[in-house]
Amino acid sequence: MRYLPALLVDAVLVLVFAVVGRASHGEDPMGFPVTAWPFLIALLVGHALAALVPMRPRRPWSPGWGAIAWIVTVAGGMLLRVVTGDTAETPFIVVATLVLGALLLGWRFAALLIRRYRGPRRTA
């Protein structure tokens, strides 16, 4: 269950990506599920794969975990879009890669900096 919070944060960020992307193109933002579903499924696969990679420490909020989730989310999301008859034009691939990378890795790097800034926790 310790993986669930990171997965939920990532899922919310994928939904934000879909809503903002649709709105920026003058499309109805409420149609975000149509845009988001391939990336959400790929995100689940990405988290599952990250859990299987023998990296240490195994923390879903680590940048390494986030990199795996990000790459699988973009690649898998684009693949699902194409096989279901949607498009994956080069500009969309580039923007999705950059934005999802900033989102999925950004919060992890922020968490890493906060943890380092706070220093080691002391127990009484």
Score class of each variant (00 low, 15 high):
37 W>R: 08
117 Y>F: 13
70 W>M: 01
54 P>L: 08
4 L>T: 13
78 M>N: 04
78 M>G: 04
64 G>I: 01
122 R>A: 15
26 G>A: 06
39 F>G: 03
42 A>K: 05
39 F>P: 04
27 E>V: 05
104 L>C: 03
49 L>Q: 05
117 Y>A: 14
12 V>R: 00
79 L>N: 04
101 G>W: 03
93 I>W: 04
24 S>P: 03
29 P>A: 14
85 G>E: 05
46 G>F: 09
94 V>W: 13
36 A>I: 10
74 V>G: 01
52 L>C: 10
56 R>Y: 10
118 R>I: 00
55 M>W: 12
66 G>R: 00
40 L>W: 10
25 H>Y: 12
84 T>D: 04
39 F>K: 04
117 Y>E: 06
115 R>S: 14
58 R>F: 05
62 S>W: 09
63 P>M: 09
15 L>E: 14
36 A>R: 03
56 R>E: 08
22 R>Y: 08
113 L>W: 12
6 A>V: 11
120 P>Q: 15
65 W>I: 00
81 R>P: 00
64 G>P: 00
111 A>F: 14
81 R>F: 12
43 L>Y: 05
58 R>Q: 07
52 L>K: 13
47 H>P: 00
97 T>C: 05
22 R>F: 03
43 L>E: 01
62 S>A: 14
59 R>S: 12
3 Y>P: 07
81 R>S: 08
105 L>C: 04
57 P>R: 08
7 L>D: 04
123 T>N: 10
1 M>R: 14
40 L>T: 07
42 A>Y: 09
32 F>Q: 02
116 R>N: 07
122 R>N: 14
68 I>W: 02
52 L>Q: 10
98 L>W: 01
54 P>C: 04
40 L>Q: 08
106 G>W: 06
31 G>C: 05
55 M>N: 07
71 I>A: 14
47 H>L: 12
93 I>H: 01
76 G>E: 03
13 L>K: 02
113 L>G: 12
18 A>C: 07
16 V>L: 15
69 A>N: 01
108 R>P: 00
113 L>P: 06
99 V>I: 14
62 S>L: 11
64 G>C: 02
54 P>V: 09
10 D>Y: 02
97 T>S: 10
61 W>D: 14
62 S>R: 07
30 M>Q: 14
51 A>I: 09
20 V>G: 09
3 Y>G: 11
81 R>H: 07
19 V>L: 06
38 P>G: 06
15 L>Y: 13
17 F>T: 00
97 T>K: 01
2 R>H: 12
98 L>P: 00
86 D>N: 14
86 D>C: 12
96 A>I: 05
83 V>Q: 00
107 W>N: 03
89 E>W: 13
80 L>M: 05
102 A>G: 15
114 I>N: 09
110 A>N: 07
33 P>S: 10
92 F>A: 07
56 R>F: 10
25 H>N: 06
60 P>K: 11
34 V>D: 13
63 P>D: 02
62 S>I: 09
